[in-house]
Write a protein that binds this DNA or RNA. Structure first.
Lengths: 232, 232
DNA sequence: CCACACTACATCGTATACGATTTCATACAC
DNA sequence: GTGTATGAAATCGTATACGATGTAGTGTGG
């Protein structure tokens, strides 16, 4: 009826399906640490809480399973994945490899403006060292690296990097929280990486440095935990 | 009741859920090329064919989507992913990176027996060159590489490698089918890789060679298609 | 003859309901 | 008292049904 044409539609998200909502909520809760590892995810309970049926919840859980945030056992149910020290090691090692490659592939695509922006972010990181807030530092650190590898022309690799970051954020073992010294060291390594990128160094060098940066974070953590450093 | 103890259970798969069956069937059909790219996957049709409801089919399709074998559009449906030359490039490039890393990580774990077995597989590959059967060659090639990276102690990376192989197998662009010369060259490179592994070379060398091997396959393909070689 | 609006169909998204499997508590035999 | 069998409760897996969304075909006005 209403000849009125475009009815505001309240700027609403056009189609936030229940599955998507359930996925986002669970993802956020796991990332935020509200749901501790080992927590049992019961379909009916979650469905009631979300005000929907079990089917969308089920789908959301399967997606989380595919990303490794929850473990799933047939006819038993899903639980939030436990964060073993080994799991952290494996995730960081994987991220070191794919992020290193992504950064190297993105390097030729980076404009001068991109580098300026990245440098600004690292400046904020440096400023953040004074009154240290781990959450903010981690957030800025994410954005800094995203600025570098974000232009990677290979969407698959980019996807793998994002998954790796997701898993890291899900496990609350943000290294900076546990090893204060690492944050300052990290900022310096960022500086070094920026210089290498600005000099338009060849891809293998960029890849090696980007990978080493993350491996050093991992090995600092391992050393603090009294374990031997990892290979690669 | 039956005091008879262990009742044979017909050696049956304990619980092959419908979702799993649907997933396996679709995966196989896409890999085998029965379902050509662009084919529209309709839930109700597939459900009728499988003798089940749409719900398991839906779940199977979402899994295939996560693996990149099908594309999905909300409220529209799923189609078998088109195999662009670009997609092939990206998949191979990603596989080169993760498989190279996996092979390097697995290298120290390889026993002499493993290497003997790998060498035997490469012998079969060489024998296969005479009466060339692309399908058999591809199959043997898979097993050869699996023997090398299979012992990778990082399950995440191993998973990424398997996903990469899956995607490659799904797109029927098995390079050996199109570029006959590549098969023989590939066998020689395998030999070189085996020698490096037998000499217990350091990880970076193994990684570089394993990556280069795959990148050469990719670049041979690109050259045949008249396109410039890829970086990295 | 072309552009637009409307109607009918196809397909997805989700709710509800039921059967299958697992797990836990209890009772019994030894 | 311990181990095993039995029952009930809980939870998952799937089927069916209905509403929401998108698409194609048809008709009308210019």
């Amino acid at each position: 009826m209403g000849r009125g044409g475009c009815e505001v539609t309240v700027t609403a998200t056009p189609a936030p399906s229940k599955s998507q909502q359930a996925y986002e909520l669970l993802h956020e809760r796991i990332s935020a640490g509200t749901l501790v590892p080992g927590y049992r995810l019961v379909l009916s309970t979650l469905a009631a809480e979300l005000g929907c049926s079990t089917v969308p919840v089920r789908e959301a859980i399967r997606r989380l399973q595919a990303e490794g945030l929850v473990t799933f056992e047939p006819n038993v149910g899903a639980t939030v994945a436990a964060v073993d020290a080994t799991l952290y090691l494996h995730t960081m090692q994987t991220l070191a490899i794919v992020e290193g490659a992504a950064t190297a592939l993105a390097a030729p695509e980076l404009t001068a403006a991109d580098l300026v922006q990245a440098r600004a972010l690292n400046g904020e990181l440096r400023a953040c060292l004074a009154d240290f807030d781990p959450a903010r530092f981690t957030e800025l650190n994410n954005r800094f690296h995203e600025a570098l590898y974000g232009h990677c022309p290979n969407p698959h690799i980019l996807d793998l990097v994002h998954r790796g970051w997701n898993r890291l954020n899900a496990m609350r073992a943000s290294s900076f929280t546990h090893i204060p010294g690492r944050a300052r060291q990290s900022v310096e390594e960022h500086e070094e990486l920026l210089r290498l990128l600005e000099s338009r160094a060849p891809a293998p060098e960029v890849e090696a440095l980007a990978r080493a940066h993350r491996m050093r974070t991992l090995n600092t953590y391992l050393a603090a935990a009294g374990e031997p450093p990892s290979a690669l």
